[in-house]
Amino acid sequence: MIEIKNVNKWYGPSFQALKDCTTSVAKGEVVVVCGPSGSGKSTLIKCVNALEPIQGGEIILDGVKVNDPKTDLPKLRSRVGMVFQHFELFPHLRIVDNLCLAQEKVLGRKHEDALARGLKLLERVGLKDHAKKFPAELSGGQQQRVAIARALAMDPIAMLFDEPTSALDPEMISEVLDVMVDLAREGMTMMVVTHEMGFANKVADRVIFMDRGEIVEDAKKAEFFGQPRSDRAQKFLSKILQH
């Protein structure tokens, strides 16, 4: 589904954010990407739908080459859902309109159809009662659930999560993770940048560990949590798991 081959990326002439990264996410697979801050994990996930350009290598999404100038990027992006650290709901639109906007303007759905789909998804994330509210009237956890619903409304073939719980208060993290766990169990293809090792342990098929722009470890979940091969991954795990 997602193939990342020898991807190199620089910010400016001197800083290399991604060094020869190669990995893949198969259909229905859940892959968790972790690593210390500045390791390039967010950059990597943003390259998948070309929010960030790459300077070397290639990324293939459902058979379409992402870094090809001939690719219709808006169309390709509309098929991949993305959830951001800071939710990024559109503050001037009511929750329902946040859910309908791209369905109507990008997919060309009729308003009634978009609305029906949107409300169904709101119900699924437990927020149907808030449909008429504005984003600023919701808590962080609720906003993030709306953001997930907004991405799902496009009927994506895969979902990208960029630290979806990092900006949340502790008591709101689980409500967002619950939605993500359900999604994973239904067979959604997911690439998740997160520090939530509990989530990884529960639903991930594979775990990727990144450090300084490199993929240091790319292993099945059991192997990763059992005995990571690299020292750096071991150190990282011991630091975040000791509490």
Binding site: K46, P74, R77, S78, M82, F84, K105, L107, A147
Partner: peptide, 29 residues
Amino acid sequence: PRGQKQAATALGLTTVQMYRYVLLPMAFR
């Protein structure tokens, strides 16, 4: 926030649509 642009782009909106429906309504406010 830079993420607004990214969110609009990630949903598949074109640049014109992004300005028309996401950025300009907030910027003018």
